[in-house]
């Protein structure tokens, strides 16, 4: 069942750039985009998502020889749901404020297409350790883009980053773009980032 063995370097590069979940595959933006109006919320969400992806991939890979093919989707969903519940309970217990900030979006990690996609495309037919790293770096590639979006949104919209006032942007010289912290801002920011990354990539491909 070893389709092809990917080197560690390939796993890292594919996850972070070449097959980046967001601008290459445009997957899984649903559960996280809504919390990108503040950098702190996004960071917590991205850490949770990366951990859930990596651990789910590891578990799916460990169980791959014992999972019947026709119910594997259900098994994968349950594995993912298990880790999400763990994250949810940890947040509720130790950081209730953040837990209520994120609202339903922690639970929605379950339906994030990236996790299922990685479990299905990679972890189901590869060794546990490389599956773990594949999940981890895909999660990281996803997180980097979302963090970039949240930095842009919070800076332009509120003049702060992580709640700290930034020079120039928090002074009266900067007219705050309130729209950036409202839902439409997320669409514009994500579209611009996809545009930028795809343009760089197509230049890369030509040269």
């Amino acid at each position: 069942m070893m389709a092809q063995v990917k080197s560690n370097k390939d796993i890292i590069l594919d996850g972070l750039w070449r097959d980046n979940p967001i601008f290459r595959q445009v997957l899984g933006i649903c559960s996280t985009l809504a919390v990108t109006n503040a950098v702190l919320n996004t960071t917590v969400m991205c850490v949770s998502l990366t951990m859930v992806t990596a651990l789910s991939c590891l578990t799916v890979s460990l169980l791959r020889h014992w999972t019947p093919a026709n119910i594997r989707m259900m098994v994968q969903t349950l594995i993912i749901a298990f880790y999400v519940i763990v994250v949810d309970l940890i947040l509720k217990a130790y950081w209730p404020e953040m837990s209520s900030n994120l609202g339903p979006f922690v639970g929605l990690i379950i339906t994030n297409c990236i996790i299922m996609g990685r479990c299905e495309a990679f972890a189901g037919s590869n060794r546990p350790v490389s599956s773990f790293w594949d999940g981890f770096f895909n999660g990281l590639g996803y997180s980097l883009i979302l963090l970039a979006i949240s930095v842009v949104r919070e800076l332009l919209g509120m003049g702060t980053i992580l709640g700290f006032a930034m020079p120039y942007f928090s002074t009266p010289y900067w007219d705050k773009w309130i729209i950036m912290v409202m839902p439409p801002g997320a669409f514009f920011a994500l579209a611009s980032i996809i545009w930028l990354c795809r343009s760089i990539k197509s230049k890369e491909a030509k040269s």
């Binding site: 933006i29 649903c30 985009l33 297409c113």
Partner: peptide
């Protein structure tokens, strides 16, 4: 969809 981005895929 337009305020919480659910169902984007």
């Amino acid at each position: 969809l337009l305020t919480t981005f659910l169902g984007m895929c």
